[in-house]
């Protein structure tokens, strides 16, 4: 074991344990780590904003390549910033409507293709009682229908209708449980990554050998 002499590694370990202390309860170390990371993320964002966005996506196209039309969205963006002056805050609506309208317009056909057409097509399966795949298809067929019934808003979940909706909710819960289990493993491996950082980079204990 050979403890690192690199001061940065010490800082990293200090903050690692500060954050972990939150598991016990809120304490000054966690508060410090929280505000440090908020500050560092803002500072990082500022630098990246300047070097990766302002210069290559605005300054160079407008002032070096002559794409003066980009002044229009710049004005729209500045109108958003004008919110800090209460008298002119309504100006930000132009830019907001530009973005929101565009996002909504894009969403409709794409959603129709990916979340309606694709899903409908994939549910049109070959049903059969004789093969394993056929029986699975029957289960999927009923599963999709019952889940759709569950999401009905204009009818109360009573009687037969309520029974079908209940089957839908069972499907949903099994599905969510499967997602839960699937994601857990990925999360655990990230935790192991932090442990390895502390052991290898800080304490110099090498587990790979």
């Amino acid at each position: 074991m050979h403890i690192s002499m690199n001061p940065w590694v010490w800082i990293g370990v200090f903050f690692t344990f500060s954050v972990l202390s939150f598991l016990y309860k809120d304490n000054p170390f966690y508060k410090l780590a929280e505000h440090v990371t908020v500050g560092v993320s803002i500072g990082y964002g500022l630098v990246i904003w300047w070097t990766n966005s302002v210069i290559p996506r605005f300054y160079i196209p407008v002032f070096e390549q002559g794409q003066w039309i980009l002044i229009i969205p710049a004005i729209l963006g500045l109108m958003m910033v004008l919110r800090i002056v209460p008298k002119y805050s309504w100006l930000s609506r132009y830019a907001i409507c530009f973005s929101v309208g565009a996002g909504s317009g894009m969403a409709i056909p794409r959603s129709m293709q990916a979340q309606v057409l694709r899903q409908l097509e994939a549910t049109m399966l070959n049903l059969s009682f004789t093969s394993g795949a056929g029986i699975n298809n029957i289960i999927i067929f009923f599963g999709v229908l019952t889940v759709l019934v569950y999401f009905f808003f204009s009818k109360e979940h009573k009687g037969v209708f309520g029974g079908v909706a209940k089957v839908g909710i069972w499907f949903l819960m099994i599905g969510f449980g499967a997602t839960f289990g699937y994601t857990v493993m990925a999360r655990l491996s990230l935790f192991i990554g932090r442990v390895l950082f502390v052991l290898q980079d800080f304490l110099g204990i090498n587990l790979a050998g």
Binding site: V116, L120, E121, T123, M124, L127, F141, L145, L148, F152
Partner: peptide, 21 residues
């Protein structure tokens, strides 16, 4: 309207499954 569309989905799924099978 959303609910009615869901009914239409269900009909389409049934028809499509019959078609495929």
């Amino acid at each position: 309207a959303q609910d009615m569309l869901k009914v239409i989905y269900m009909i389409v799924i049934v028809l499509g499954t019959v078609s495929m099978t």
